[in-house]
Amino acid sequence: MDQTFSGQLVNLFAAFLLLIAFAMLSQRRVLTLIRLFAWQGAALAASTLIVAYSTGQTHLYFSAALAVLLKVMLIPWVLHRLIDRLQVRWDVETLINIPATMLIGIGLVIFAFALAAPISEMANTVTRSTLGIANASVLLSFLMMIVRRKAVPQVIGFLAMENGLFFAATSATYGMPLVVELGVALDVLVGTFIFGIFFFHIREQFDSLDIRHMEKLKED
């Protein structure tokens, strides 16, 4: 596979990543949100695989495998089980209505590209043009965490942010050293489990996963 072709393929997957980030912002249903998260993981793994193949960076194969295992299979499965057990199928409420959120999102993407432009020029990887996209998906996930009121979508926002960061690492530098990536993956996995435990505690205490109930601790 020659460099330009693989570069274009990576760009394609990067575009998917950004599209999925927007889709998540606009999605009201929790189940679909989890499915989208799994697809984002798949796009991430595919682009990592292409970078690994075209540059011969063997450790990226591990990263790609890790992404498939963790982000496409394990975490979505855990989240599925959680919402089955908790029976939260209802629609997601947002703080700001969805069209307005999308407009803010577009603004964030422009900002992210402006921020990434000087760094992209310095990168000598085949994937440098995608750094802006990585940055944008981090910011979009951030936005999602801010505008969602329920605990589960907030967590998916957090996990999607980690996807964006992972993509930034592959696109700017061909991935971090393997030991660091393993450590980050471990943290994310443990974090997901703790979030899961939390959901039960919150539900037990408040009879709901709405974080509006958790705004009592304020300065008065």
């Binding site: 957090f158 700017a172 530098t173 660091v180 703790i194 979030f195 205490q205 408040f206 601790l217």
Partner: peptide
């Protein structure tokens, strides 16, 4: 209830914060 709220806040804010630091480490 108060301790759950505190822990949730701690978890979300620190995780989001530290995600920014991860971007710093990548740079």
């Amino acid at each position: 209830p108060a301790s759950l709220e505190a822990a949730w806040k701690y978890f979300i804010l620190c995780s989001v914060g530290i995600a920014q630091a991860l971007f710093g480490v990548i740079l």
